[in-house]
Write a protein that binds this DNA or RNA. Structure first.
Length: 602
RNA sequence: GGGGCUGUAGUUCAGACGGUUAGAACGCCGGCCUGUCACGCCGGAGGUCGCGGGUUCGAUCCCCGUCGGCCCCGCCA
């Protein structure tokens, strides 16, 4: 795939093959390894195509040899020499060019290199801060180079696919309006409008809908989004989305084009055939069986409902909870008795408490489906038989129970499920499980805000079948939305949007957003929707996260050229940093006394 | 905002009941070496033990604080 930009002057390392033996070429690149044998020197020359061995022999070219004596790692050199076959027995099967080598007839040092702060391509893990500070060196490593080239191929494939499907790549503003909904905005002060601020977009959501009103019908963009929230291994404050929107479509259309796109990506980039259509899981079922709206389906360990079994339980925690409307749910860890010591089980209690659990009931499964240990003595024969049957529990298994509200029990067991799977290696390597989660609730009740809020965003269309429930039972209304989940990570999501201003007004009403407030926040979108907005919908994908999963990396930092630390700091550029007082003055900004107590001086 | 782990040579790590010269490997510097490919061999240099304070006769080690890093919770379409 690498191409030579200057054919007459330079040849790329991996363009050379055995058929070139005897021919003379010029190569340019970096000294990757240097091996001095006294009268004979070898270097591995690296350019962006790959690696090629160069030999310096004092009997062949004294001048070359003299210069080569002074070469060091990562010097940049230009070498002219003749291709020859390596002597028998000295071939290197680990190299693409391992059967040949170049005998140098002339060498120029184009640049020298300081002693490196860390060794490139070392198998030791170098401190990530140091790697980020010298990111340009880290990017010379095979792994990161391959990741970024993979990323380039990935976005190319997407653009090619969508362009051919009649999509238009349209840019939307980075300097835009702050919206209080959603995550915290990055603010940018306006010099020409003192005291006013732009926000960097959390996503191009509103603009892509407006483009549908404009009649483009098919829009996409591979675009940076900004959210000022705390970082995680799969979250950076600036990240890249593949953003798409289409007019005159329904959920099935969006699902179908997404499946085609992902099948193509997996096929072309990983040589993996994805089965179409993808699995589809109802939100309720996902919560019920996996305790998560982004279920990891690569392993079983499903959650089961035992509420009906334990209505008359001798355990008051079970019985009282059920009477209060709670549930009893459980998962069964195969062979758990052998995997976990008593101490491990005790430690699990602390772990599930962090997940929000009040406790952790458990029983071991013995011979003939008898239960032992934990709460076994409080379980009647009838309860035991039903429990063992429902969970399919076998001798040696451990069953973990949660007695709590439906929401808490499911979320605790869902997280325990993932914890156990990771700890006891239940997740198969190298497998990709992709599926849709659909039928999300449109609203949920926010304890924090004491009001109904959108699960997705306020422009998500209610499912048509539930329109009649909007008035009386809004929390039971499902939305016309869909999430794409890969290996238990949400990699994309979208919805059919509301294109009717009347329905949109109704939604705002349910969300306790007054017409005035709606107008102030989203007036431009509401105006747009009132001028002949077509039915439309779309989806957006987390590009960094997808790449992380496809490349089997543990952090999105490994697929981003210049990522930030967990404090959103860039060690390479030392950003963010303090600015000159005059810059603030121009913006009409004065720092609070308490701001930046330990400012780094400029 | 909270929890966990962590900071010793350029890098990755070891280390000491609190005790006098803090080690190894790789890298670096010098030398030797004509078939290596993480070349090999010989020799050498290199450390405010993150920073500040405290306890102590004495702290890199113990205590407190602080800064940085990673993971997670909260937060996040």
């Amino acid at each position: 795939m690498p191409q030579n930009l200057n054919k007459t002057l330079r040849t790329l390392c991996e363009d050379i093959q055995e058929s070139d033996i005897g021919k003379k070429f010029t190569f340019k690149g970096w000294v990757m390894h240097y091996r001095d044998h006294g009268g004979l020197i070898f270097i591995d020359l690296r350019d962006y195509s790959g690696i090629l061995q160069i030999v310096f022999d004092e009997n062949i070219d004294k001048e070359s040899f003299k210069i080569a004596k002074k070469l060091k790692n990562e010097y940049v050199v230009s070498i002219t020499g003749t291709v020859r076959k390596r002597p028998q027995g000295t071939e290197n099967t680990g190299l693409k060019t391992g059967s040949i080598e170049i005998i140098s007839e002339s060498v120029d040092v184009l640049n020298t290199c300081e002693v490196l702060p860390f060794q490139i391509d070392e198998e030791n893990d170098v401190n990530e801060f140091t790697r980020l500070k010298y990111r340009y060196l880290d990017l010379r490593s095979k792994r990161l180079k391959e990741n970024l080239i993979f990323r380039s191929n990935f976005t190319y494939l997407i653009r090619d696919f969508l362009n051919n499907k009649g999509f238009f790549d349209i840019e939307t503003p980075f300097l835009t309006k702050s919206t209080p909904e959603g995550s915290r905005d990055f603010l940018v002060p306006s010099r020409l409008n003192e005291g006013h601020f732009f926000a960097l977009p959390q996503s191009p959501q509103l603009f892509k809908q407006i483009l549908m009103v404009s009649g483009f019908e098919r829009y996409y963009q591979i675009v940076r989004c900004f959210r000022d929230e705390d970082l995680r291994s799969d979250r950076q404050p600036e990240f890249t989305q593949l953003d798409m929107e289409m007019s005159f479509v329904e959920t099935e259309d969006i699902i179908s084009i997404t499946e085609d796109l992902f099948a193509l990506i997996f096929n072309k980039l990983l040589n993996i055939k994805l089965e179409k259509p993808f699995k589809v899981l109802d939100y309720d079922e996902a919560m019920d069986k996996y305790g998560s709206d982004k279920p990891d389906t690569r392993f079983e360990l499903l959650i089961n409902n035992l509420t009906d079994t334990f209505t008359n339980s001798a355990l008051n925690v079970f019985k009282d909870n059920i009477q209060k409307g709670g549930v009893i749910k459980a998962i069964c860890l195969p062979n758990g008795s052998n995997l976990l010591s008593r101490k491990d089980i005790d430690e699990l209690l602390n772990i599930v408490k962090d997940f929000g659990a009040k406790g952790l009931a458990w029983t071991k499964v013995g011979e003939n489906g008898l239960l032992e240990g934990g709460i076994a003595k409080f379980i009647s024969d009838d309860e035991r038989e039903k429990t063992v049957a429902r969970l399919g529990a076998k001798n040696g298994d451990i069953i973990f129970y949660q007695s709590d509200s439906k929401k808490t029990a499911e979320s605790v067991l869902g997280r325990l499920r993932l914890h156990l799977a990771k700890t006891y290696g239940l997740i198969p390597e190298g497998r990709f499980d992709i599926l849709w989660v659909v039928n999300f609730p449109l609203f949920e009740y926010s304890e924090e805000e004491k009001k109904i809020v959108s699960v997705h965003h306020p422009f998500t269309s209610p499912a048509e079948k539930d329109l009649n429930k909007l008035e009386n039972n809004p929390l039971s209304v499902k939305s016309d939305s869909y999430d794409l989940v890969l290996n238990g990570e949400e990699i994309g999501g979208g919805s059919i949007r509301i294109h009717d201003t009347k329905l949109q007004g109704k939604i705002f009403e349910i969300l306790s957003i007054s017409p005035e407030e709606a107008k102030a926040k989203f007036g431009f979108l509401l105006d747009a929707l009132s001028f002949g907005a077509p039915p439309h919908g779309g989806i957006a994908f987390g590009v960094d996260r997808i790449l992380m999963l496809l490349k089997n990396e543990n952090s999105i930092r490994e697929v981003i050229a210049f990522p930030k630390t967990q404090k959103a700091y860039c060690p390479l550029t030392d950003a963010p940093s303090v600015v000159k007082d005059i810059q603030l003055r121009e913006l009409g900004i004065k720092l609070r006394e308490t701001a930046g107590k330990n400012l780094k001086s400029e």
